[in-house]
Amino acid sequence: MAHYSIKELEHLSGIKAHTIRIWEQRYAILSPKRTETNIRFYDDADLKNILNVSLLNERGFKISKIAKMKPDQISAEIMALSEVPGDNQGQVNALIAAMLDLNEEHFEKALNKPILQLGFEQAILQVVYPFLSKIGILWQTNNICPAHEHFVSNLIRQKLIVAIDGQVLAPSATSEKFLLYLPEGELHELALLFMNYLLRARKHHVLYLSQNLPFADLVRAFEYYQPQHIVTVLTSFPERDQVQHYLDKLAQQFHRTRILVYGHQTQYNFLKFPENIKKLQFISEFIDAVSPA
Rank of each mutant, 00 (worst) to 15 (best):
residue 223 E to D: 13
residue 246 Y to V: 05
residue 46 D to R: 05
residue 275 E to M: 06
residue 272 K to L: 00
residue 108 E to P: 00
residue 112 N to D: 05
residue 169 L to V: 12
residue 285 E to R: 08
residue 57 N to V: 07
residue 57 N to D: 01
residue 277 I to L: 10
residue 148 H to R: 10
residue 46 D to M: 08
residue 220 R to K: 15
residue 69 M to Y: 04
residue 140 Q to G: 06
residue 95 L to C: 11
residue 198 L to N: 02
residue 69 M to W: 07
residue 117 Q to F: 03
residue 109 K to E: 03
residue 212 N to F: 09
residue 162 V to W: 03
residue 204 H to V: 07
residue 263 G to E: 01
residue 70 K to P: 08
residue 232 T to A: 07
residue 51 L to N: 04
residue 114 P to V: 01
residue 53 V to L: 09
residue 276 N to L: 11
residue 174 T to R: 03
residue 121 E to P: 06
residue 240 R to E: 15
residue 154 N to R: 12
residue 130 P to H: 04
residue 116 L to P: 00
residue 271 L to A: 02
residue 54 S to Q: 00
residue 210 S to H: 15
residue 239 E to M: 14
residue 94 A to H: 09
residue 242 Q to P: 08
residue 275 E to W: 03
residue 93 N to G: 02
residue 104 E to A: 15
residue 182 L to T: 09
residue 200 R to K: 06
residue 125 L to I: 14
residue 120 F to D: 10
residue 52 N to P: 04
residue 137 I to R: 01
residue 204 H to T: 06
residue 7 K to A: 13
residue 82 S to V: 06
residue 56 L to A: 09
residue 61 F to G: 08
residue 263 G to I: 01
residue 255 H to F: 14
residue 108 E to H: 02
residue 23 W to Q: 08
residue 203 K to G: 02
residue 142 N to R: 03
residue 48 K to C: 14
residue 251 A to T: 07
residue 65 K to Y: 05
residue 13 S to P: 00
residue 17 A to K: 04
residue 196 N to Q: 14
residue 105 E to A: 15
residue 61 F to E: 14
residue 127 V to T: 05
residue 276 N to R: 07
residue 236 S to E: 10
residue 20 I to N: 01
residue 67 A to G: 14
residue 11 H to D: 12
residue 178 F to Y: 11
residue 208 Y to F: 11
residue 187 L to Q: 10
residue 150 H to C: 08
residue 218 L to P: 11
residue 82 S to F: 01
residue 81 L to I: 02
residue 67 A to V: 13
residue 147 A to R: 11
residue 280 L to C: 14
residue 106 H to D: 10
residue 119 G to E: 05
residue 252 Q to N: 09
residue 284 S to D: 15
residue 2 A to T: 07
residue 86 G to W: 12
residue 127 V to K: 02
residue 6 I to D: 05
residue 69 M to H: 10
residue 98 A to Y: 11
residue 183 P to Y: 13
residue 261 V to E: 03
residue 46 D to H: 11
residue 63 I to V: 14
residue 177 K to T: 12
residue 94 A to D: 09
residue 264 H to K: 14
residue 14 G to R: 04
residue 100 L to W: 09
residue 127 V to L: 10
residue 125 L to N: 15
residue 134 K to D: 04
residue 83 E to C: 12
residue 173 A to D: 15
residue 254 F to K: 00
residue 200 R to W: 03
residue 118 L to V: 04
residue 146 P to A: 03
residue 260 L to I: 08
residue 115 I to G: 01
residue 259 I to C: 02
residue 54 S to L: 03
residue 198 L to S: 02
residue 52 N to T: 09
